[in-house]
């Protein structure tokens, strides 16, 4: 019965594949549709927030910060309500992280402010004296890639039916209109809470540095998800 297994590489490979695949089919498939349902009132990220999420990925914040509050009292005391599956419905990719060298950020928008982030990213020790986090000064000079963030919004709207309005549409013209009408005003609301004059000047001249985008993203993490 098992004779052919050891002799025929093709049959052998097929059997190995089936054995390997079995677990994936059972553990992953059944919950696929259920787990992707958003919680009630969850809003998709704005384009500026998506650009901030890209900065979060680019500077790889998730190598030290999680976005997953576990259902323990010690965690809910420290970070707030434990995380719900539906809160991540528009997170592509998921950014839970696997290591907390720094604190969890899943609800950081509830208790940190724009100017706190502004100081913290420039020099973490100025806010938390014992911090071992590096400063991210380049976020104050690098420009956020708004167009790519917009392209992402268009993609998830068209393919995954993420509920964006008609203003998210294909093409350069639609992007430029959205940038002027929505993204820039939103960035100005962020810089209104910031102190650095050069950042304000950049946004006024129509350029959005990474720091503005990532603060928009940070502020979003928390109750603002559904507001």
């Amino acid at each position: 019965m098992f004779h052919w297994l050891e002799k025929n590489p093709f049959f052998f490979a097929v059997v190995v594949f089936l054995v390997i695949a079995f677990a994936g089919v059972v553990t992953i498939l059944p919950n696929f549709s259920e787990a992707s349902q958003p919680i009630k009132g969850l809003k998709p990220y704005t384009v500026l927030e998506l650009a901030g999420k890209e900065v979060y990925k680019k500077d790889n914040c998730l190598s030290c910060h999680s976005q997953l509050i576990r259902p323990f009292k010690s965690e809910t005391d420290r970070y707030g309500q434990y995380s719900l599956s539906g809160e991540y419905a528009y997170d592509r990719p998921f950014l839970w992280g696997s290591k907390r060298t720094g604190p969890d950020l899943h609800r950081v928008g509830n208790y940190r402010t724009t100017d706190w982030h502004e100081n913290h990213m420039w020099d973490p020790k100025s806010v938390v004296p014992d911090s071992i986090m590096p400063a991210y000064k380049h976020q104050y000079t690098n420009m956020a890639d708004i167009e790519t963030a917009y392209a992402e919004a268009v993609t998830v709207k068209n393919i995954f039916k993420t509920p964006y309005g008609p203003e998210i549409a294909e093409g350069k013209a639609a992007f430029e209109k959205h940038f002027k009408d929505v993204v820039l005003p939103e960035a100005k609301m962020i810089t209104a809470g910031m102190k650095k004059a050069d950042i304000k000047a950049m946004v006024d001249s129509g350029e959005i540095p990474e720091i503005v985008a990532i603060i928009a993203y940070m502020n979003r993490l928390g109750n603002k998800r559904t507001q």
Binding site: T27, I28, N31, F32, A35, S36, E54, S85, E87, Y88, A89, Y90, D91, R92, P93, F94, W96, D145, E147, T148, A149, Y150, A151, E152, V154, T155, V156, N158, I159, F160, E170, G171, K172, F175
Partner: peptide, 24 residues
């Protein structure tokens, strides 16, 4: 998927949130 916008290297995951975590 956006009519030629943004960085050509950028992609967005087919799975979201908890599903993405499970696959990952």
């Amino acid at each position: 998927f956006s009519g030629g916008l943004g960085n050509i290297m950028h992609s967005v995951s087919m799975y979201s949130g908890t599903n993405d975590a499970m696959v990952q």
